[in-house]
Amino acid sequence: MTGKILAGVLGAACFALAPAMLHADPQSDLEVYQRFFKEKYPDIPFTQFADGAYALNEQMRENWEAIEEFPPYGPFVDSGERLWAAPFANGKGYADCFPDGPAMQHKFPRWDKEQGQVVTLSLALNQCRETHGEKPMKYKGSPLVDLLSYIAYQSRGKKINVVVPKDDPRAMAAYQKGKDFYFTRRGQLNFSCAHCHFKNSGMSLRTDILSTAVGQTTGWPVYRSKWGTAGTLHRRYTGCNKQVRAKPFKRESEQYRNLEYFHTHMSNGLALNGPAARK
C-alpha cells in the first residue's frame, strides 16, 4: 500500500518535473537570443534590428530608405482604413471587437486561455467577423492584408511584448512547439530557420543578406518587391519552407501560429514598424 502510494507520488513528481526540465524558460531564451545579436553586432543599436537585413548593410540600407520615401504599401493602408470603418451587415464593426482602436498589433500574437490556442491578429480579425455573422477572410491577399496594413500603420512605435503566461502549461507548450519548429532541420536542404538567421545572419547568400532572427516580426505586412505586393508573415513562412524544399504548412495553421508566438517573443522590446518594404 505504502509502496503504491510512494510510487504514485514519485510518478506525479516526475510528471511535474518533466515539463520544467524539458521546457525552456522564455525569459532566459529571450536574453540569450538578444545578447547573441548584441554581441555579434556591437556597433548596431538594438532598435535597428527591426529593420531586418537593412540594419546590416549600408548600401542596401540607402536603397531601402529611398524606397520608403514613396512607400509601396501606401495603397494597402488606405484600403485597410476604409475596410476598418465599414460596418458589418449587423451594423457592428471591427471597433466593437477591438475597443482600443486599430493601434493594437502589439497585443498579438497572444495566448488565449479560453480557446486554448495562440491567437494571431489575423485569426482575431476573422473571429471578430464570425462573431458578427460575417464570412471569415481568406488568409491571403485582400482584404486581410489591407486591414493588417492599416492596423500595422496605426500601431507603429508600439513595443512588442509577447507574454507566455505561467499559469497555463498549454501556453508554455505552444511556445515550446514554436521553438522546436524554429530549430528543426527541414526539407531536402536540411536547414532550420536558425541556420540562416542566427550565426549566419549578415552573411551573403549570393547577393542577398541574411537577416537577424531578432527583429524579423516587427514590420508585417511587408511589401516585397519579389512578390510585387504586400503579404503576411505566414506567407513568408510558406516561402521559407519552400526554399529549403519542405512542404509548407497552411497559413494560420497551429504550426505557424505557434511559430509566430515563439518568433515574435524573441523580438520583445522592439518597436513595431510595419508595414515595411523589403526586397
Partner: peptide, 13 residues
Amino acid sequence: SQKGNVQIPSYLK
C-alpha cells in the same frame, strides 16, 4: 530523428 530531440545550436546555450 528530431522529435523531442531538436538540436539548439551550441553557441545559443
